[in-house]
C-alpha cells in the first residue's frame, strides 16, 4: 500500500531531550492507523512531528514525497487536519462558527466565508450528525457533541489526512464508540487517511486497519491488529498478561493482569 506520510530515520523531542531516536515510520494511505503504547512512549511526540507541528531534530518527514518543511502552515493544514488532546471549548461560539474555523486554511485575504466555504461547513456538520445543533452554543452541548463539533471543524479543512490525539479519553463509553464509529464512517465514505492515538487496545484492534506500537521512543511492532496484538506484545510492551480471543476475527484482550515488575 502507498505511504502518504513517511518519517525516515526520525529523531524528535522537546528542547534538548530526545524522545524518539532514529525511527522509521510509514502511514498507509486511506487506512485508519492507530498509535498505541504505554504512557510516555512517544506517541504524541511522533504525532506532533508527523503533522509538522514540531520540526524533527534529525531525519526527514515527508508528506506525499515532499519534505514537510517545504509546506507553509496553510498548505500543511490543507493536507493534514489535527485534533489535539483536550481542546479548550471557547465561550459564546456556535457550532457553525466553530466549524467555519476549519475553512481558514482554504481562504485568502480578509477570510470571509464564500458560498463554497458555507457549503463545506454545512457538509461537515451533516457528516458528524449535528445538523439539529447547528446554531447552538458549544458550551451548551454535551462532551460527546462538543467532540463531534471539533471533528466537524477538522473535516471542513477538506484534508486528506485526519489526525486525532486520544479523541475518546474524556468521554463515556457510548460517546467513545460513537466517535470511533464516526471516524470509521469518515474513512469509509471520504477515503480519509485517519491517524489516531488510542489508549484502549481493544478499541484500537476493532477500529484500526493498521497499528503502530511504540515503547521508549522506539517502534516496537507494526502491522494489522492481528500481527501486533499478541500475547508477547502484551507482556513485553504493556507489561500485562492476557488472553487474545477473537470476536468476529477481531483480536480482543481478555483476562488481563499486570505482570510483576522485574527488579533490576
Amino acid at each position: 500500500m502507498k505511504a502518504i506520510l513517511k518519517a525516515d530515520q526520525l529523531t524528535a523531542g522537546y528542547g534538548h531531550k530526545v524522545i524518539i531516536d532514529q525511527q522509521t515510520v510509514e502511514i498507509p494511505e486511506g487506512c485508519v492507523t492507530g498509535l498505541i503504547g504505554p504512557n510516555g512512549c512517544g506517541k504524541s511526540t511522533l504525532l506532533n512531528t508527523l503533522n509538522g507541528f514540531e520540526a524533527p531534530m534529525a531525519g526527514n518527514v515527508e508528506l506525499d514525497g515532499k519534505q514537510m518543511s517545504q509546506y507553509s502552515a496553510k498548505q500543511r493544514a490543507q493536507e493534514i487536519a489535527v485534533l489535539p488532546q483536550r481542546t479548550v471549548i471557547p465561550e459564546g461560539i456556535s457550532v457553525f462558527e466553530l466549524v467555519s474555523y476549519g475553512r481558514y486554511c482554504r481562504q485568502r485575504g480578509m477570510h470571509r466565508l464564500s458560498k463554497a466555504d458555507r457549503q463545506a461547513v454545512e457538509d461537515a456538520i451533516k457528516a458528524v450528525h449535528l445538523v439539529d445543533k447547528h446554531d447552538e452554543l458549544l458550551t451548551s452541548l454535551s462532551g460527546g457533541q462538543q467532540q463531534r463539533a471539533l471533528i466537524a471543524m477538522t473535516l471542513a479543512q477538506n484534508s486528506r489526512i485526519l489526525m486525532l490525539d486520544e479523541p475518546t479519553t474524556y468521554l463515556d463509553l457510548t460517546n467513545q464508540l460513537e466517535i470511533l464509529d464516526l471516524l470509521h464512517e469518515l474513512n469509509a465514505t471520504f477515503q480519509k487517511t485517519v491517524i489516531i492515538v488510542l489508549h484502549d487496545l481493544n478499541e484500537a484492534a476493532r477500529y484500526c486497519d493498521h497499528l503502530i506500537c511504540m515503547i521508549h521512543g522506539r517502534v516496537a511492532a507494526v502491522g494489522s491488529p492481528d500481527d501486533v496484538l499478541t500475547e508477547t506484545t502484551l507482556a513485553n510492551i504493556f507489561k500485562v498478561s492476557g488472553d487474545i480471543t477473537y470476536d468476529n476475527d477481531c483480536p480482543q484482550i481478555t483476562n488481563c493482569h499486570p505482570l510483576p515488575v522485574a527488579q533490576p
Binding site: 474555523y101 481558514y104 471539533l150
Partner: peptide
C-alpha cells in the same frame, strides 16, 4: 482578527487549522 479568533482555541488546535503561530 481571523488568526486571533482561531487562537481562542488552544494554540495547538489553531496551528492545526493552519495559523502560523
Amino acid at each position: 482578527q481571523t488568526e486571533l479568533t482561531l487562537l481562542g482555541l488552544d494554540s495547538k488546535t489553531s496551528v492545526g487549522l493552519g495559523v502560523s503561530f
